[in-house]
Design a protein around this nucleic acid. Structure first.
Lengths: 208, 208
DNA sequence: GTTGTTAGGATACGACTGTATCCATTCAGG
DNA sequence: CCTGAATGGATACAGTCGTATCCTAACAAC
């Protein structure tokens, strides 16, 4: 075998270049040639490691999902002591909200993908499945906390969770458009978590 | 002067064609030729009545704003008797949520514009100004209702209004992706209005 | 050293984009 | 009637797009 190259590493670099473009100039600015330039390689290399533009886009979407997952776990791990239900919700919702430059770029790219998926059936198949799973998971946790008496009995778990996730998404959109700062958005989420769970008992996990 | 044509009417038809494409196939599918085909005219006609593609896109954005405004007023007018604070909020939030096929298409187009504006400074200038004005207006109304004793004194008007608007936006996004039905989203909004203002006192205005 | 596969540079193809130009038709004002 | 502006059909132009092809360099296996 001739000169061997780490294909996964090459693909990772190209995917990162793609997401950099999508986050700064939008998904419509993503072309094979732009990705090549951003990654500092030739067009042929991009073609060589991805059969299609479609494959490239799917790789970008997968990477975004992986990064989001990593952020949630990081925030959950940063919570001192065992993770309370409120801590879990704060971790998830805090991870959704863009908090630094990197997560802002990722969030922009995610929004671009989501919007594209609304009118592109090819992307819709892979891109719009995560929210439901997350909602179900959090609803279950919320219901358990409620049965334990940590939440008022008259709250509807399914509605509360759906609302919190929709709220985080709506706030994200306003943070991306710079209508609101990250801190203002985080305060709004805290305000609602306070109403649901009572005032926070421990230190807030650090942003990032 | 030779054969005279109603320019405003022509421009309106072309703008409608543009929004039809943006709502069904996305903003990236909008080209001068596609608009011409959708409107049943030649490419030259599109060029004749709009100097630029830019001008065409701005016209689409303006039309979307006008339609949204019309929907809010319609819902407000449909409310029996004088408009209560809750009625106002229900009208505005209900108008944001896509409720029929037409408002769904408009909402999709709006989302496409909003996403594009996040990375396109030309669109950002005209497109991202409405939300703030609406938020200020509703916050004022909310504060007045609170001083009149119609809302609990410990609610923060600015936060509550910002959260309601973000909630409506987030729910809209979930309705567009068919993660949730319009009815489910409307129920979530009602649930929160009930918590804020107490249970609804009058009939809910009809959808549409 | 020859061979054969892997890795990529260079270039080309047809489709599509926004925009510009050329030209024919229509019809009111003189 | 005739002239000139309004309207729009047809076509061209320079770019960019995704993709395909051709060809060369590198290097492990034999």
């Amino acid at each position: 075998m001739p000169r061997q190259v780490d294909h996964d590493e090459r693909r990772r670099r190209l995917t990162e270049a793609l997401l950099r473009i999508a986050g700064t100039r939008g998904l419509q600015a993503v072309s094979m040639r732009e990705i090549a330039a951003e990654a500092g390689v030739s067009l042929r290399v991009v073609q060589y490691y991805f059969t299609n533009k479609q494959a490239l886009l799917e790789s970008g979407l997968a990477e975004l999902g992986a990064r989001m997952d990593r952020r949630v776990r990081q925030r959950a791990a940063a919570t001192a002591g065992g993770l309370s239900t409120r801590g879990l919700f704060a971790a998830v919702l805090g991870a959704i909200l863009p908090s630094d430059e990197q997560s802002r770029l990722d969030s922009l790219a995610w929004t671009a993908y989501y919007t594209a998926a609304l009118t592109d059936p090819a992307l819709a198949a892979t891109g719009l499945t995560l929210p439901n799973a997350l909602e179900d998971f959090l609803t279950e946790r919320f219901a358990i906390a409620q049965q334990a008496g940590d939440v008022d009995a008259d709250r509807d778990p399914r509605i509360e969770v759906a609302a919190l996730l929709a709220l985080a998404n709506g706030l994200t959109s306003s943070v991306l458009s710079r209508q609101r700062s990250h801190e203002a958005a985080a305060a709004i989420i805290d305000y609602h978590l306070d109403r649901l769970f009572g005032p926070a008992s421990t230190l807030r996990p650090p942003p990032g």
